[in-house]
Amino acid sequence: MHKHRWVPSFLRFGLVLCLLAMSSCGFQLRGVNDIAFKNLYLQGQNVSIARDLKRSLLSNGVALVPTPEQADLMLEILSESAEKRILSLSGTGRVREFELNYQVNFRIKDPSNELWGMPQTISGRRDFTFDDSQLLAKQGEEARLNDDMRADAVRELMHVLSVQRPKPRTKPPVE
């Protein structure tokens, strides 16, 4: 029993060594972004992606401000759409597969610039099989796929925002 007493200290040393190696190579936990701005003004908050986006922004240390004047960066959600179309039919004319499409259009503006940036699009697509004998299960699967596409869009939008480098705001001269 006392012969293997060196194992716990060896494991601790190995763990410390792994942590040092990961921190020295620039490892960062997923979802932790190096965002160069601290305040964001969000236009278009009546879309379903807004709630998840707000949560992600707040968890990354970005405050949502009520006016554009307080913002380091401005984001406008232009549109959001979710579509469902038939992908294939069985020989008897019953739906076998559906295709789900999700799309978000947005644009970004640096408050120091008078013009908005070009509209950008994030889109997602998922296919799923359909069986009308399992209607409730398939409705649940469809809802999960739509939620996954929205979460992917939030992650991609956070990546787009993380590479934005707004110009520093200058305070107006005091008279």
Rank of each mutant, 00 (worst) to 15 (best):
I122N: 05
Q139S: 10
G124E: 07
D152G: 10
Y102K: 00
P168S: 08
G124W: 02
L136M: 07
T121M: 13
K138D: 00
P173W: 12
V104M: 04
N113K: 15
K138S: 01
E114K: 13
V160R: 15
G117T: 01
E141V: 07
L157G: 02
L135T: 08
A153P: 11
G117N: 12
N146F: 02
H159A: 12
L157W: 04
A151W: 02
D127G: 05
R107H: 07
V163N: 08
M149F: 00
I108K: 03
Q103N: 06
R144S: 13
L145Y: 10
D110N: 13
K167V: 09
V174Y: 12
E142Y: 02
D148F: 06
L136G: 00
M158C: 11
E114L: 09
L161E: 05
A143P: 04
A153Q: 09
R107W: 02
R155D: 13
Q120W: 07
P173V: 14
K109H: 07
K138I: 00
F130C: 00
S162F: 05
P111N: 10
A153C: 11
P166L: 12
V160I: 13
G124T: 04
G140M: 02
E142N: 08
A151Y: 04
D147L: 06
Q103K: 13
K109N: 10
F130Y: 14
G124C: 04
S112A: 07
F130S: 04
L135W: 00
S112P: 01
D131T: 09
L115I: 02
F106K: 04
S133C: 03
N101Y: 11
V160N: 11
